Simulated scan of single mutants.
Amino acid sequence: MSSVPVLDAAAALQVAAELGAVFAKGAAQRDAERGTPYEEVAALKASGLLAVTVPAEHGGADLPVAVLAEVFRLLAAGDPSIAQIPHSHFVYVNLLKHQGTPAQQARLFAEVLAGASFGNAQSEIGTKHVRDHRTTMVEHPDGEWRLSGEKGYCTGALFADWIPVLTHRGVDGPMVVAWVPRTADGLEVVDDWAGMGQRTTASGTVTLREVRVDPELVTGYAETFTGPQTYGAFAQVLHAALDAGIARAALTEAAEFVTTKSRPYPDAVVARAADDPLVVHAFGQMEVSVRACELLVAAAASAIDAADADLTEESAGAASLAVAAARAATTEASVSVSSRLFEVAGTRSALDSLNLHRHWRNARTHTLHDPASWKVQHLGRWALEGVLPPNHGQL
């Protein structure tokens, strides 16, 4: 595996914009056919973008969250399914920064700089509570630790070189992350994701049958939330950037359709649908919504950077609140703009062959990741009484 380029901020944004434009060209067809984007992910891995948050002391660019969030937005504006694939990669790079041992950091950051990516095996299948975990890492009589269980929503795992597995150390032990090679014996990735949207993320299932674990590659996880942290806010702002990208993509494609294909309504007495004052006003309203959510994402990412520079309970709480506002706004904008697209574009836009409905399906599917209503609740409690949000991985 050869080394990937180390990108500074300007180069990272340029590469993201270029890849986003390339990904956009095949997004509708891939979605319609549920095509697995192997070539596109290979291009993403070779670009150097997956290494932009590797710390400088390990040879990386160590770019701020504000740049990474914009990278995600640009990729998502091209194809949000492809943009979602490396989400967990960056989350676990972030975990390594905060919880990895020096030896783990040296080994795994070197892998990333050589072009490797991390997937995830985090969410449990069949449990009633998000904190329930049936997957366990058990010590056998021969002294080896082995993983067994089943994980769902494993976005990125199909394309990954390493799969971080969230598990218990022992039956009743603390939560840890076991780093397992994608090719490990007993590990299987099943591409069985069948959601109505984000169809080509390959967010399938990982099954683990007595998978051997290297004890030197087990990283603490529970400790992440014992004090002030931005780990949750970091993960959440990337989700928000994804939704902002979906909103921008829907608005861009709506504008292209209206200016080239839509027929004007007779009462407007105009030659082009794009000159109908009601249509123009609708586009203005949507532009306001999309711009607002884009700015809130940028502000939230900057708040995380500020908190990381001076981490306290107050700065971490401020970052979480900023991310909550971004997630609420991007949820509203992505769902509403991708739906209103049809109102402004007219009847022809509903043709299944055009696949314009993928924007709404993508928005509606991805925004279910965390309920926006709870983000608003936390913001409301802070606005009323100055109550900081809870300290967990969803904020």
Rank of each mutant, 00 (worst) to 15 (best):
A184T: 07
V171S: 11
T136E: 02
W374C: 08
E39T: 10
L395S: 02
W179Q: 07
Q377W: 00
W145H: 15
H133G: 13
E139W: 03
R107H: 10
A324Y: 03
N355W: 01
S117V: 11
G35D: 11
T201E: 15
C154H: 01
A27I: 06
L63Q: 02
L13Y: 04
E314W: 06
A184S: 12
L395V: 01
L7R: 04
A255S: 11
K375P: 07
Q104L: 13
A43D: 06
S339V: 03
V52I: 15
G380V: 03
Y38E: 15
D191R: 01
R263D: 15
T219G: 06
A298N: 05
A24G: 09
A271M: 09
A282S: 08
Q236R: 11
V258F: 05
S88Y: 03
V177L: 14
Q105K: 13
V280A: 13
V176M: 10
A12R: 04
V190W: 02
V180M: 10
V344G: 03
S302Y: 00
A240R: 03
E150S: 13
I304E: 00
A254N: 06
R34S: 14
D8G: 09
D370N: 08
C293D: 12
W145N: 11
T367C: 12
A298R: 00
G26P: 04
I85P: 15
A51P: 05
A241P: 09
H58A: 12
A299M: 01
D352T: 12
Y231T: 04
A43S: 11
L356Y: 12
Q236S: 10
A69S: 12
G48R: 02
A319Y: 05
L113A: 11
P181D: 07
Y153I: 14
K375C: 15
N355T: 11
H392L: 07
E332K: 01
E385C: 10
W162V: 15
V4S: 08
P164N: 05
A42W: 08
V180Y: 09
Q236N: 11
G245S: 08
L113K: 09
L63N: 07
T155K: 09
T201F: 10
L321Y: 02
L187T: 05
A322V: 04
A329W: 01
Q14H: 12
T155P: 13
E256G: 13
V237C: 12
G346D: 04
I246F: 07
A322D: 00
A202N: 02
F23G: 12
A301L: 06
V22T: 13
V337A: 15
H87K: 01
N362V: 12
S88N: 14
V65I: 10
A160W: 07
N391S: 14
D8M: 04
L44K: 01
N362P: 14
R182T: 08
D192A: 14
R348E: 15
S336N: 02
G173W: 05
S315A: 03
A178G: 13
A274G: 13
T201W: 07
T207C: 10
H98Q: 07
I125V: 13
H392R: 00
P37M: 10
L113N: 13
L74A: 11
A69L: 04
V6A: 12
A306C: 05
R34E: 14
G204F: 06
A363R: 04
G156C: 09
R381K: 06
F234M: 04
V112R: 05
S2N: 11
Y92D: 07
S3H: 14
V6G: 02
P277Q: 03
V387T: 12
